[in-house]
Simulated scan of single mutants.
Amino acid sequence: MNYQVLVDDLPEIEIYLNEPLSKYTHTKTGGPADALAFPKSVGQTQALLSKANELEIPVTVLGNASNLIVKDGGIRGLTLILTRMKKMERHENQIVAESGAAIIEVTKFAQKNSLTGLEFAAGIPGSVGGAVFMNAGAYGGDIKDVVFGAEVLTRDNQVIYLNHDELDFGYRHSSVQANDQIVLSATFNLEVGIANKIQEEMDHLNELRAQKQPLELPSCGSVFKRPEGHFAGKLIHDSGLQGFQIGGAQVSTKHAGFIVNVDHATATDYLNVIKHVQETVFNDSGIHLETEVRIIGDDPQN
């Protein structure tokens, strides 16, 4: 497939060919995308999907590429990063934010508008689209608690609106994920609060995050889902795995639920550490740790 046709047919859209995804992922790992596009609007996103459907090439959406591992073989077809779509508006007690807006920026926007309810998300590094896609959460809050609805793009290029119930949120799950749809924007239902109190809570949670999480090193965030009745980090710690390292990927010595890039890690290093952690914890406790991080792309060619 000659992906130059995308560049030629859609000159108004920022598109790169054979682009290393390690430049964009939070782990600083990942192979090349055949074509990587940065649409700035719903119209441009639809134009890209239409062209990809016409050419019969797959489309992958990365969001903010935070809770994500892209394999070293990269991603075939067209990859979209929606971070150029980041407008936010307030409508009374609601905030409408485009998919590519950083959740952290939405929490700041809410605080400036004296709207409370999003404080728990003040340190989540993902985008609005990614947060809705996986029902992101932290410190006792989940995105499902505050989302009123979302505008999404179906794979046959139809823009539809899903209300809260239709989003069918579960633990790190949504109908958008199940149906392989693309979030375009989300509406957050908040309450009027006191700006300085909101800021205090955000500062408190960010301080806790900084104390407990290895924010100073590249990582994919929380690697494993929380097993019922347990904490993944404690199980990993109890198996003596903190500091375990393959290549440049290491189980964080600060928080066992994180794997950090300490020395030019590859995605394969990450996946090998994950596999070892899963096997060791299962042998020690009988509990299988499921990955929360999204793992996509092709294995490297030998």
Rank of each mutant, 00 (worst) to 15 (best):
A256N: 01
K225V: 01
L184H: 09
F38H: 11
F258M: 08
M134F: 10
E216R: 01
A210I: 04
G126R: 06
T79V: 15
Q158N: 15
A37T: 10
N2C: 04
D72P: 00
L215R: 12
F244Y: 13
A97C: 10
V132T: 09
G30W: 05
D180Q: 15
G43S: 15
R294G: 00
Y171I: 02
Q242Y: 03
E292H: 06
A65F: 03
M88D: 08
Q278N: 06
L36W: 06
N163I: 03
G123K: 08
A47L: 04
T45Y: 11
K112L: 14
V152A: 14
N163T: 10
A97F: 01
A186K: 09
G137M: 01
Q94P: 00
K71Q: 12
T60V: 11
P20M: 04
T280L: 01
K254F: 01
A210D: 14
F148L: 13
D299W: 12
N196R: 07
G141F: 07
G221E: 09
G123W: 05
A102K: 15
L78A: 09
D142N: 14
A121S: 14
K23R: 15
L80T: 02
L82T: 13
A122D: 12
V281K: 03
Q44L: 06
N206H: 09
T154Q: 05
G149P: 03
E200V: 04
H237D: 15
S99I: 00
L78K: 02
Q177I: 00
E207C: 11
V70K: 07
A150H: 07
Q213D: 04
G77S: 05
S219L: 07
P125A: 08
A131E: 04
K51Q: 13
N157H: 08
I13N: 06
H164W: 03
I13Y: 10
V106W: 11
M202T: 11
A267Q: 04
F231S: 11
Y171R: 11
I182W: 00
E54K: 11
D238C: 02
Q242L: 08
Q250G: 06
G137R: 09
Q44N: 08
T116W: 08
F244K: 01
I259K: 02
G63H: 00
I103A: 08
F244A: 02
V42A: 08
I103H: 05
